[in-house]
């Protein structure tokens, strides 16, 4: 499975919405799909499934706001 697919699966399971897989430039926070708790779950899963560590204080909603941005950030951290 590619990083992209894994990230999208994680997002889908946390938010319970399949929209996150279709609309990659949707703002997850503005739409109320992701909140602080969801964010923490996301970070924990990224660490468990992809071995990518993102400190909570590194997480800036303007850089991690859409599914595509999250994928890009994870890919760059893996690189």
């Amino acid at each position: 499975m590619t990083t992209k697919e894994t990230v999208l699966d994680i997002l889908e399971s946390i938010t319970g919405s399949d929209e996150v897989k279709e609309v990659l430039d949707m703002d997850l926070y503005d739409e109320g799909i992701l909140d602080s708790l969801g964010t923490v779950q996301l970070l924990v899963e990224l660490e468990n499934q992809l071995d990518v560590t993102v400190p909570v204080s590194e997480f800036d909603r303007s850089d991690w706001g859409t599914p595509q941005q999250i994928i890009d950030q994870v890919v760059s951290l893996q690189g």
Binding site: S36, V40, L43, V56
Partner: peptide, 14 residues
């Protein structure tokens, strides 16, 4: 949110 809640949640969930 960033320095108390999320950090605590991260530990609790992990």
């Amino acid at each position: 949110r960033d320095y108390v809640y999320m950090r605590l949640m991260f530990t609790l969930i992990k």
